[in-house]
Design a protein around this nucleic acid. Structure first.
Length: 513
RNA sequence: GGCCCGUUCGUCUAGGGGUUAGGACACCAGAUUUUCAUUCUGGUAACAGGGGUUCGAUUCCCCUACGGGCUACCA
């Protein structure tokens, strides 16, 4: 019997989604798409203490920006609504109680202080793993140690309690991971995890099993940090009687900091010199602002392509993939096992590739938008020309303005080194003639402009290499840039003449005597 | 500390018992050019170490080292 593939992305709204979370969502999406299945988003907000306003909205915006489409979610709705665990609160207790009745879970009344004391005691006794487990639960205050009527009384009097899973003392738990193969864990290394908290909310462990089962999830694709608790989840499926429809697991290798020193985390913010968030984030508590890939100028297609290759590869030499191509090529088997260091260089390269693949007219819009902000008028035609000469030299859309402002604004300062080396009387004399004859050009094109310059150069007995740097300096103030003749064509004869005049005045001091 | 996972160029990775260990980013050099960039060509650079198994291990097994994750009434 083939079940329809159903995967879920289940973030908790405790802040902005970070890049590792985006990758997890992406892999889920690619897998669902590849298999012709469905992807849903479930908000895991069972810890009300960690609620961060705006976080949920941020998650949706991020996925939308990336082009990750959801079939079911709190905002898209779906047959398994609600998709927010806080709204599903009433349903979890039944399952917890079932576990209690079946002898797989129990009430525990220990206070935080008592738990601390227990751990201290075990630590002092040099116990390797101080935990609430098959041995220690016998010394604690729970429904396994207390007389039945006392338990009843405590419950009825409203004493705070939690429900803990009764993990067997000696049992091998096997777990098949799609990426790592069989993982064997002994039950003695798992503690009696809290299933229901004293505030009536389930913990992640219970909630995710109940919801994944109810929502018909077939594959759980999540970060490697969940691998240690996966055996516990297997136990829960078993005790709840759902083992036959238990989803398959795939635990993704983590995204590491560039130095390999620990996993990339939200707290890294901008400390590493690159964004860790897809979109800019304003912390509602501290007011702190963290940069995002979108605002930094990364195109979503480039960002997605880059992210997909962090830990996965198609096994071919193709590097550029659209979302559809990624989905087509995707398979869980080709996800790597080891942690992936983050390298922003590759992201920049991808961005350049995607930018250059765009038609000039589209790139021109980036420039036009920036110009509008600076209240500078510019024709569509001119913007397209500039985009065309700049596209091979930009990494981000902002660069069209940032690195090409001289098309609109005359230079106010000039590169000193070039001025010292290249500005001289011979060059100035050429420019003077050039400036004066510019209006004579019939058809004002880069080719014709060059022909004129060459002709003047010949009259002066000079070669083009002797003046180009100086001319570029006069017109742009810079030492480098796109083809100068194209620049002259674009800024026009009047502006060119004006800039030559200005430079001749301002650079007088650099002329060697 | 305990448990779990991992380890191929600087980085992302392909590969797999016998290969000149392949690609991409980055880096370096050359070519082109009016500069820088682009582009093209070429180059440097890797199987963590030690034991097995085997005719032969980078590939399979074990150990060590190193790295990472988990170890909450957080997810």
């Amino acid at each position: 019997m083939e079940r329809e593939v159903r995967v879920r992305f289940a973030p908790s709204p405790t802040g902005p989604l970070h890049i590792g979370g985006v990758r997890t969502a992406l892999y889920n999406y690619l897998f669902a798409k590849k298999m012709g299945g469905k992807m849903l988003l479930r908000i895991e907000d069972t810890d009300q203490n960690r609620f961060v306003p705006g976080a949920e909205d941020y998650i949706f915006q991020s996925l939308e920006w990336c082009g990750i489409k959801l079939d079911e979610s709190p905002v898209h709705g779906g047959p398994h609504a609600p998709y927010r665990q806080s709204e599903r609160k009433p349903m979890y207790m039944d399952y917890a109680l079932k576990l209690v009745n079946d002898g797989h879970a129990y009430y525990a009344f220990d206070t935080a202080e008592e738990l601390d004391a227990m751990r201290e005691r075990l630590k002092a006794a040099k116990v390797a793993t101080p935990q609430y487990n098959a041995i220690t639960r016998n010394t604690m205050r729970n429904s396994l140690t207390l007389p039945e009527d006392e338990v009843k009384e405590l419950l009825e009097s409203g004493t705070p309690y939690v429900i803990r899973l009764k993990v067997p003392r000696k049992e091998e738990i096997r777990l098949k991971d799609l990426i790592r193969g069989w993982v064997l864990v002994h039950s003695s290394s798992i503690d009696d995890k809290v299933l229901m908290k004293s505030d009536g909310m389930p913990t992640y462990h219970l909630a995710n099993i109940v919801d994944d089962h109810l929502m018909d999830i077939t594959h759980v694709i999540r970060g490697e940090e969940w691998l240690p608790s996966a055996p516990l989840h297997v136990l829960l499926y078993r005790y709840l009687g759902w083992e036959s429809t238990m989803p398959e697991f795939a635990h993704l290798p983590l995204l590491l900091k560039p130095d390999g020193n620990g996993k990339l985390s939200k707290r890294d913010g901008d400390k590493l010199g690159f964004p860790v968030f897809p979109l800019e984030w304003h912390d509602p508590f501290t007011g702190e602002k963290s940069s995002g890939y979108r605002e930094s100028g990364y195109l979503p297609e480039a960002f997605v392509n880059f992210l997909a290759f962090l830990g996965w590869n198609p096994g071919t030499h193709q590097e550029i993939f659209s979302m559809d191509e990624l989905a087509e090529a995707f398979s869980i088997e080709r996800i790597g096992k080891s942690g992936t260091r983050f390298d922003i260089n590759k992201a920049r390269w991808y961005n350049e590739q995607y930018l250059r693949a765009k038609p000039d007219a589209e790139l021109a819009q980036y420039l036009l938008a920036a110009l509008a902000e600076h209240n500078i008028a510019c024709s569509e035609e001119k913007a397209v020309k500039i985009a065309s000469v700049m596209k091979e030299r930009v990494t981000f859309p902002q660069d069209f303005w940032r690195e090409a402002a001289y098309f609109f604004v005359a230079p106010e300062t000039y590169n000193e080194k070039v001025a010292e080396k290249k500005w001289n009387n011979a060059a100035v004399a050429v420019f003077e003639d050039f400036k004066n004859q510019l209006p004579n050009i019939q058809e004002y094109t880069a080719d014709n402009i060059k022909a004129l310059l060459l002709q003047i150069l010949e009259q002066h007995n000079m070669k083009i290499g002797q003046v180009m740097q100086a001319l570029r300096l006069a017109l742009t103030g810079l030492e480098a840039g796109p083809d100068l003749m194209a620049i002259i064509e674009i800024i026009g004869p009047d502006e060119t003449a004006k800039r030559i005049e200005t430079a001749t005045e301002k650079l007088q001091a650099y002329i060697p005597s």
